[in-house]
Design a protein around this nucleic acid. Structure first.
Lengths: 195, 195
DNA sequence: ACGATAAGGAACCGTTGGGTCCTTATACGC
DNA sequence: GCGTATAAGGACCCAACGGTTCCTTATCGT
């Protein structure tokens, strides 16, 4: 019944992070407990606190392990690329415990280093790179103005989607993505188009 | 020493909400406690729970009481109006306990009605109205394209500022406002301008 | 003047994050 | 193969929290 062997090091660590993720998924951020995670991982709190110095630190580790991969869409059209990208990110959001991000923002507030780590992950430089690739390709095709776009424009689509996500409860309606792209992002990209 | 009289009804209620606000300001959302608020208001938890059925509900009441007034700027120029508006909202943000909004988002997640109340207040229809007035005036002056702008555009400035606020710690740098307006909002408003 | 209402105040409950202590299994240097 | 440093497992403790209950006593409406 009991596991014959005692796990150690990275094997154990991996098991704990996975247990934390499961706890977060099933209980949500607000109700997830260290005891629950320890029980789930078949270990004790002692072992948890040896590795992570606080609860939000472990939760952030669990989030980072989740590491969803987002590919660079390449449909041949800027608009469709952006819609595909945001659509994919929307899917990723839907897999997250609903209060994880806001909970981490709240609970890392008094730990600058941890907050920065969270912010870096959530604001995801990776996604910005993807957006930049999409825009560069579009510029090469002559669909948008040439030259590298300013940082704000690159961040814009993801910032708007994240804002929508944080300020809502259930899953985001699909229309949100196309609305953001068609009403805000695309009009900004087209050099001298109407509306 | 002790107050001779026993407060009741709205007098007491007002005192409690104010105590809650002070507690939030001094301790922050994460560390504010019901006991602390009761002590501060010179009453007991019993009285608190008679009026608000949970902690986040009281916190939201305290936030709503805060009710900062935002006037409609009228400088004669769209850009300056928008900069003034966002600048004012930035000031309001700076008066808020740093983790209040994210904390409320997290802790109202399992109470749909309360979440909606929070969302309605934070997304503030009032600010959208102000933006609409600014844009209409600008259209009248011929500074931007005529006709009512779509809802997304109206929300855009505030959404971007709120996103910046939620995803950061200390007070927002002043440059944030002008960046949002000049890099994103204004290029969208000018009918056929460059960049 | 009196009775319903509600304030003040205390004690209580279950649970949490965090920590201590002791036993015991494991990995590694010899 | 053996012994020792290391760390896992697990029980227990702690202060503090949100929320609840109960009792006493002041206030208000009638």
């Amino acid at each position: 019944m009991e596991q014959a062997k005692r796990r150690r090091g990275s094997t154990l660590e991996e098991a704990i992070v996975e247990a934390a993720w499961n706890e977060l998924r099933e209980a949500g951020y607000a109700k997830a407990t260290m005891n629950g995670i320890a029980r789930r991982a078949g270990t004790s709190k002692h072992v948890l606190y040896r590795r992570w110095k606080s609860q939000p630190e472990l939760f952030l580790a669990a989030l980072k392990r989740f590491a969803a991969t987002v590919e660079v869409p390449d449909t041949g059209d800027v608009r469709d690329d952006l819609v595909a990208l945001l659509g994919r990110i929307r899917q990723v959001f839907d897999l997250l415990p609903r209060d994880l991000i806001s909970g981490l923002i709240t609970d890392t507030q008094d730990d600058p280093a941890l907050f920065e780590e969270m912010r870096a992950y959530v604001m995801g430089a990776g996604v910005h790179d993807i957006t930049r690739v999409i825009l560069r390709r579009a510029a090469d095709r002559g669909q948008i103005e040439p030259g590298p776009p300013c940082a704000r424009i690159v961040r814009l689509p993801i910032d708007l989607l994240r804002n929508e996500y944080l300020m809502s409860r259930g899953p985001l309606p699909a229309g949100t993505v196309t609305e953001i792209i068609d009403d805000v992002v695309m009009p900004l990209l087209r050099p001298a188009a109407r509306r």
